[in-house]
Design a protein around this nucleic acid. Structure first.
Lengths: 336, 336
DNA sequence: CTGGCCATTGACAACGCTGTCACGGCCAGG
DNA sequence: CCTGGCCGTGACAGCGTTGTCAATGGCCAG
């Protein structure tokens, strides 16, 4: 036989109508036991698997959800997607990933594409600033926004205390005696990073420390530029005694640069954990932004909406904590 | 208007038949310029996006491919998927991920599910030993096997020199004077790891070193068990002077255990790179198993098959190299 | 014995799209 | 003038599934 078996094949083998096959496959009550058995046998013999494309077309709601993120190569999002996929598998739902590469226009295209795939729901870590298009294209399908947001009304969201957490990180460094604290992060287009930068500024302001623009490095959200920026900071006439890295990927670069420059005496706090952060010398103090609870909360919201719950938009804000491990507790080296 | 626009909506607005809309949308030649313009205007006005579920049902070939891997949380696979998704996006194809969690039965279920999604092709990093089911369920759809295989005939494959690479790693340690070299890895069910273990044994045999079962640690493919196994190795009366870790995730655990046990004097080589491996003290010597060329090669094969090429099954084996960084070049500490 | 009810089952349409085929109009060649 | 072919276009079927509705038959109360 060529091609996969259809309900017609099963029906023919079992000697029933296609509708009865459909009923058995979908677990309907109104099927007699002998009939059910015949159908099940036929299903097993033919290795019948429901064509979920036809199912999706017919029912209008697919058995996949879409997840829109920066890049799956980012370990934060990788872990996020992993948890989501695990939970969705239990519901028999597949996960379609679409990466934006941090381009707002590409985000829009990806969301439209996913909508065209009849996904049942969308989980988006938004990039751009204008998200009005989402409503146009998703047409009432459940949407949960993750890790970014704060300015988009009417959607369920899950985010972390970016500003508060960043302030806590910098407060921690200030409490350790630091006054020249560098900021490493992406440019302000990314809401999350913008918030963390505000937290950084909050902390400096609260301590009466003047902002030194030289210590504020943007456009370095990836390891390489972050490493380069860190190297430049080290070469300053009056270098920082501490670095606050606003995302884990940047932290990879910062750590590399500090180690390669043999300047592990410089204090550092990273917003977001990363592999081996606790095995370095010194171990890296982090702001704990664990993707797992974020993903869990997002999936809970998504499943609730997919079950048809019609409550108000829910906004979940997860707390974050400073996890001291060593690098954030280094004292400032001798002042010049 | 409720729901997304369909060809009927566009046809009505443009004053043409649905077929003509279809022709315009699909870039058929035989449409007059004025008609095309009217249709395009209507498409833009209604924000029409082709329902790819209906398209997929009708044409029988979807616009998504499926990728079956252990876990997207594994950075090797995350990077792999990232490259694949990037390439596929250029072709207008979505990526459906399905993780097996290293369970053979789950692998089978996932492959069947993806087949039911009408995916156009499948890229699988196989787990189990019996893959005869693949042919049943994929029914002639292009399939490329990645990173595992060697025993499955008739499929395109991309793999790395597992055995040769592992032997090179252990040779490297032996050349450095080591004779008590531990092996850390998953159990032998995983073809890749089994091959690497053979490479380890090859190297020992070639050097005339007797295998010490105490130094052969299996069932530790994840960081935690690998760390536990390493700790146990360190506690042996006659501990190893070097460790060969057969996969990057295990290496994370090994590194953690070595650092926490303050035994960074123990030499180590990791099969597969990981983040910060070059920033540790000492930096970790690796066997370079870069996911990018693997993904590129796999995508090339997949696209060729999707274009209908009918050549013989192609088996690509990518070479691997030892990248010395320090940890693999440590001399054995004083013999007891 | 009969009417009515319920459980079981099936015929048919429809989801949105594209492939097939047919139709009308135009032009070139006879 | 007629004919044949090509171009632009549309009517219709059908991909595999489920929802709607009706038909069948068995069983029980009257």
């Amino acid at each position: 036989m060529s091609g996969r078996a259809t309900v017609y094949d099963v029906a023919r083998v079992a000697g029933v109508s296609i509708k009865t096959v459909s009923r058995v496959v979908n677990g309907s009550e109104h099927v007699s036991e002998p009939t059910r058995q015949r159908v099940l046998t036929a299903v097993a013999d033919l290795a019948y698997v429901r064509n979920s494309v036809a199912y999706s077309l017919r029912t209008g709601s697919g058995d996949a959800i879409g997840v829109v993120i920066d890049s799956i190569a980012d370990s934060f999002f990788a872990k996020l997607v992993s948890v989501i996929e695990e939970r969705m598998l239990a519901e028999g739902i597949s996960v379609l990933i679409a990466s934006t590469g941090r381009s707002g226009s590409r985000e829009r295209g990806q969301v439209a594409r996913l909508a065209g795939q009849n996904v049942r729901a969308l989980l988006i870590a938004p990039i751009g600033n204008d998200h009005s298009y989402i409503a146009d294209v998703t047409q009432g399908m459940p949407v949960v926004l993750v890790d970014r947001d704060w300015e988009i009304a009417g959607y369920d969201t899950v985010l972390v205390q970016d500003r508060v957490g960043a302030k806590a990180a910098v407060d921690h460094l200030i409490a350790g005696g630091h006054r020249r604290i560098a900021f490493i992060g992406d440019n302000g287009d990314l809401p999350t990073i913008a918030e963390r930068r505000l937290g950084y500024l909050d902390a400096l302001a609260a301590a009466g420390i003047e902002v030194d623009e030289l210590l504020l490095r943007t456009a370095c959200g990836e390891p390489e530029p972050a490493a380069a920026a860190t190297a430049e900071l080290l070469a300053l006439p009056d270098p920082p005694t501490a670095v606050f890295s606003s995302n884990p990927r940047a932290s990879l670069g910062v750590v590399r640069a500090l180690h390669q420059g043999l300047r592990t005496d410089i204090a550092m706090v990273s917003f977001g954990d990363f592999a081996l952060a606790d095995s370095l010398e010194p171990a890296v103090t982090i702001i704990d932004q664990d993707p797992t609870p974020i993903a869990e909360a997002a999936v809970d919201l998504l499943l609730a909406r997919m079950r048809g719950e019609q409550s108000e938009a829910t906004n979940i804000v997860l707390p974050v904590n400073v996890v001291p491990r060593g690098s954030g507790e280094l004292a400032p080296w001798n002042r010049s």
